[in-house]
Amino acid sequence: MESPLRIGVRVPPCDRADRVVETVRRAEELGFDDVWFPDSQLLWRDVFTTLTAAALGTDRIGLGTAVTNLATRHPAVVASAARSVAELAPGRFTLGLGVGNSSVGPVGLRQTTSAGMRAGLRMLRALLDGEEWEFGDAGVRSRLRDPGPGVPLHLAASGPKNLQLAGEIADGVILLSGVSPRTLRSATARVREGAEAAGRSADHIPLTVSAFCAVTDDIEAEARLIKPICASIAQNGGAPFLALAGIDVDVPKTVEGVYPDLVHAEDWPAAVEICSAWISDEAALRFAEEFCLFGTAEQITQRLGALRSAGVTGVFLQHVGSYDPPAELIEAIGSSVLPALSAPTPAKAGH
């Protein structure tokens, strides 16, 4: 019997850690399985400080980074931070890693390459396991005192190289393709290729999908708000994925008037208006219907069930916005969707 789909929610560290923990506690009370925190040093409070407070302030809920990186944080620094949080939340912490995105851009650094990610994960795992590591050309060998073996390392990926890399070396994969069946099939196929090349079974690699979510009776109105998300995907090489869903858009590489970027715009209404030059209301609606979880509680429940049938093991839901907690989303999902998902399936006639 397959395990139930894990339902998580993304909570940006957008306020003091003690206040963010109030949101995490509410998610735990309502039955969410996980809370995932993004890491971007100029946008939010420090992610590991927030995780420490969350670990001390909760009892059951899973905690994870979605995601931190190995560019602004040296792998040895990440190893120490991850071990420190894992000690406070035994068996509850997952270290999600990615290429950097909003962490590296604002400080003029480049995203981590696939080769860099491979090397960084090797170092990180060795240190967490208590092994010595040779640093630099000078041949300095060091190890992490009081290591934390067993911390799951999940790799966030969207492109084919990193999807294959995740299948090859990571303990789990965070899929950035949304819930579109077409893109999910393509993404999971790449993960499987990487796993098989390494002699691993892809069936045992957790797959967590990130998805924007809104419980609503008016999908058209909510869809208009995610134009910057759609534009950012097209801007960063995702146009072919959008085209699979019949969304043909051409967004310039540089968009003026949005800070710090399209996904994390401080003035969201302005970003929506700016992106309306390339993303029509129709395209936004199509994007919401194909890639996001927008709709009534019943519709969202049905789509989540379909994800589990497709081999996905977890999902973390995102609200539109980076600088406020997802309180409304947590209440809506927690009060209507989670009870429906946990309800026993009616027996078929004759059984």
Score class of each variant (00 low, 15 high):
residue 161 K to F: 03
residue 126 A to L: 02
residue 49 T to H: 05
residue 89 A to Y: 11
residue 133 W to R: 12
residue 350 G to V: 04
residue 165 L to P: 00
residue 92 R to Y: 06
residue 195 A to H: 07
residue 213 C to N: 08
residue 123 M to L: 15
residue 252 P to W: 02
residue 181 P to K: 04
residue 220 E to P: 08
residue 58 T to P: 05
residue 185 R to F: 02
residue 108 G to Q: 07
residue 39 D to P: 01
residue 130 G to E: 10
residue 256 E to T: 15
residue 3 S to M: 14
residue 31 G to L: 05
residue 322 S to K: 00
residue 191 V to E: 11
residue 220 E to L: 15
residue 246 G to V: 01
residue 342 S to G: 12
residue 340 A to R: 13
residue 106 P to Y: 10
residue 252 P to G: 10
residue 244 L to W: 07
residue 147 P to W: 02
residue 73 R to Q: 14
residue 132 E to M: 09
residue 142 S to C: 14
residue 234 A to W: 01
residue 21 V to K: 00
residue 129 D to G: 15
residue 130 G to Q: 00
residue 220 E to I: 11
residue 291 F to K: 10
residue 296 T to N: 06
residue 287 F to V: 14
residue 222 E to Q: 11
residue 114 S to K: 14
residue 334 G to R: 06
residue 118 R to G: 06
residue 201 S to M: 03
residue 226 I to R: 14
residue 240 P to H: 04
residue 162 N to R: 15
residue 180 S to T: 06
residue 80 S to R: 11
residue 215 V to Y: 07
residue 341 L to E: 00
residue 229 I to A: 13
residue 172 G to W: 02
residue 147 P to C: 08
residue 169 I to M: 01
residue 16 R to I: 13
residue 62 G to W: 10
residue 112 T to S: 15
residue 266 E to P: 10
residue 278 W to N: 08
residue 203 D to F: 11
